[in-house]
Simulated scan of single mutants.
Amino acid sequence: MKNDFSRCCSSLIPSRKTARFYLLCLLIALYMLAGAAIFSSLERPAELKAHQLWERRLRDFSHEHNISCEDLKSLLRYYEEARTAGIRADRGRALWDIPGAFYFTGTVVSTIGFGVTAPSTVTGKVLLVFYGLLGCSATILFFNLFLERVITLLSFLIFWCHRGRPGHSGLEGRTGEENRNEEWKPSVYQVTLILFFAVLLVACGAAFLYSTMEGWTYMESLYFCFVAFSTVGFGDFVSGQREHHEDTWAYQVANCLLMLLGVCCTYSLFNTISVIIKQGLNWMLTTLAWM
């Protein structure tokens, strides 16, 4: 009877992988709740203040030009519909010429999705589903291969550093070859540190370019780099959308290359950080089991 009861209890205990999954879900939920509380306390007062300012400006404009608020709101609704087609109050660059469409496809396959450009035709929306499915899959594969190349390059550099040590001879036999190969492989902490500095270097250089070409402050440019490179893509800042940018081909090419390099490095950094988080979850499970 005791054996049956113990077997029943042991079957109810989740495996280590399942427990790690549940623990990660719990931590992510708590992380999101904490973030929601912090951002709500920071941004909600500004949102209410912006609503009050907008209502006051709307009333002042309607009184000044003798227009009813309903007619003015109706015009604004038409303008909101026009924004989907790329219409702006200040004229910007063309959105659906070849360079503009190429910029759009880049935001699709990289999963950035700024939201400035979106297909308005039914055919374009249907095509985007299948185009994005294949394009995003191929791009994620490209990011993974990029991370493999980074690890291979670091292994090569560590190998040459070991060979350059005084008193280090060549291969000393087949028995120690596997140990040396493991020794030459970089740790996840080394890869994370190098990728972090790579992302920081690319972001700082790109922020200098964007602050010069877009008229943003340097902090706004750094903020845009993180939002774009992490593929969050809020759309509050978007590069290369001004009218005169159509004539600056060098800036358009540099913008695309910086986006590609920044997303590759940041995606690889996210991968290595996720490995460290996984190690932390294993340590937490081991500690809980010991307790």
Rank of each mutant, 00 (worst) to 15 (best):
E178S: 12
E178L: 14
G124M: 01
T231Q: 04
E177P: 05
R242A: 10
R88F: 02
L195T: 00
L222Q: 01
G170I: 00
H168E: 13
L141M: 11
P45W: 02
Q252N: 06
S169W: 04
E182W: 12
R163C: 11
A206H: 01
S10C: 09
L26M: 07
Q241R: 07
C265W: 02
S41R: 08
A85R: 11
L258G: 00
T175A: 11
A85T: 02
I158N: 10
C265Y: 06
M32R: 05
Y267H: 11
N271T: 15
S211I: 01
A37H: 05
P166W: 11
F142E: 05
S62T: 07
Y22W: 12
N271Q: 15
E183F: 13
L53S: 12
G132T: 06
W283T: 14
E70H: 15
S239T: 06
W216K: 01
T192W: 01
D236A: 08
H63G: 09
T175E: 11
L27K: 07
E172F: 03
K2V: 13
P14A: 04
L141T: 13
A82Y: 03
S187F: 10
R7G: 02
Y218L: 12
E214Y: 04
V199L: 00
F229S: 00
G240C: 08
N66Q: 10
E220V: 06
D90G: 04
I273D: 02
L72H: 10
L53V: 09
L145Q: 14
V122Y: 08
V129K: 03
R16H: 07
S110L: 03
N282M: 08
L127K: 10
I276A: 06
E148L: 14
H51S: 14
T107H: 01
R77H: 09
L260N: 07
T266D: 01
T139F: 15
L58T: 12
V232Q: 07
S120H: 08
A82T: 06
G164F: 15
T121D: 07
C8H: 11
S169N: 11
C264W: 03
Y131S: 06
S155L: 03
Y267S: 07
F39A: 08
T84L: 11
N271S: 15
K17D: 07
F156W: 13
G35S: 14
G124Y: 03
L48N: 04
R7L: 12
E148A: 12
Y103S: 15
E148S: 12
S268H: 06
V108E: 02
Q241P: 04
A85L: 14
L195A: 00
V238T: 04
C161V: 13
Y210T: 05
